[in-house]
Design a binder for these strands. Structure first.
Lengths: 221, 221
DNA sequence: ATTAAATTTTAGATTAATCTAAAAAAATAT
DNA sequence: ATATTTTTTTAGATTAATCTAAAATTTAAT
């Protein structure tokens, strides 16, 4: 029904429109599929004919309900296989992406459901990303506080639980912005303060008081 | 390196030349790949250029050492995945072939070795077929066809050499399951069909055609 | 040993996914 | 508001795997 290639396009369009919550540009898709914009134009026309996307020339693209359902099935398989590779086969979480990119296209509903059961119906993959259920429903995201993150983990800042101006201004000055990457380098036991490295490679010191108020989500590194 | 399609050709050439131990004909390959002879000719030329087969126009084809190594890797993966599907996910042995046909092309040495270990280094798949090791070495075969068994002998069923769902379902209906005991009671000379008694003491008639595809191991009675 | 039949290969098309180069449309800047 | 730049699309080719129809080769039969 949907080819390997079509599935990859749908998955990428899903991810891009989840980020921006608006039409996805041809160039953005080209970048992630590692193809040229011309190839993307062709494929969007084709996906549109198949009712998998809504696409108006020059106006970007969005998934239809059908297209989203397909994308979510692929993402579900990808994340379940990642759990399998890490939990059952002992891979590190940074070694599984490429293999899961292949496994996500294996076509068998029965297989997916049995795998899910075998893994104990996991809600999140080894990178902390939520696994959609059979119906494409994502589990509630469970943000963590930066203060709960263990040394070595890589996270993205997704929010704050303290909204005072002084706090937010302090964060801005530190370079701690929404969406920035944080790697926990050291935990200082005596006061639970943290040494972290940000996405721009700068090193920072974060007090436990501040860490408690930063909401983060783990990411692949 | 080798595409999905090329791997399928190599696998099929391997199986055909294992059966006949001689050059494999274009038509025989066409039948199993479900393509036309013309397509096979094209592909054989291509595989020959890649040093995967020895091919002389009109003279049939054989695998080179390289081609055989690739074929054995695919077969190894196919059979390991079948073990996984049956042993870990609880599939019946007649449901796993199609899924394994897809999984056998997943490309990751590391994955195969870890899967092998996870499954406890199995020597045979759920159909009783031997699983080649990392180096392509097959474990010693320890079975015969039921058609070779003499009257009065008692055997245990250890596998099948035909994997179609219809055949496997027919066996299930007869009560011929993996591990069941079979005593050959009578050989009907005119058509080589057999009268047998099963472990549950029921009597059955088995055609030569079916007997040829049942792998058995003799037991003391 | 010819002829007839079967098998296999070549020639020329087709489909999916991609590319480069050029044209068209939209966004941005003066 | 017009010109420039950027983005996107079209046009025309390319590659892998397939097809049909016709030609070439081998095998089998008289």
């Amino acid at each position: 029904m949907t080819s390997f290639t079509e599935e990859n396009y749908l998955k990428i369009i899903y991810k891009l429109s989840a980020e921006t919550d608006s039409e996805v540009s041809t160039n953005a898709v080209a970048e992630l599929t590692l193809t040229k914009a011309a190839s993307v134009s062709d494929m969007l026309r084709k996906l549109s004919e198949k009712q998998l996307v809504n696409y108006q020339k020059y106006q970007g693209v969005r998934l239809t309900e059908l297209g989203e359902a397909v994308a979510l099935k692929v993402i579900r398989k990808h994340r379940l296989w990642e759990v399998f590779l890490v939990e059952k086969l002992g891979f590190n979480w940074d070694e599984v992406h490429e293999i899961a990119e292949q496994l996500e296209h294996i076509d068998s509903e029965e297989l997916v459901e049995r795998l899910d059961e075998f893994l104990g119906f996991p809600k999140f993959d080894p990178h902390g990303d939520p696994i959609p259920d059979t119906f494409g429903i994502m589990p509630e995201l469970r943000y963590q506080n930066l203060s709960e993150i263990t040394v070595g983990q890589s996270v993205v800042m997704v929010g704050v639980s303290e909204h005072s101006a002084t706090f937010l201004q302090y964060l801005a000055k530190m370079g701690l912005t929404l969406g920035c990457h944080i790697v926990v380098k050291e935990l200082n036991d005596f006061d639970k303060s943290l040494n972290v490295k940000l996405g721009d490679l700068s090193n920072h010191f974060i007090s436990h008081e501040v860490a408690k108020n930063l909401l983060v989500k783990s990411v692949k590194n």
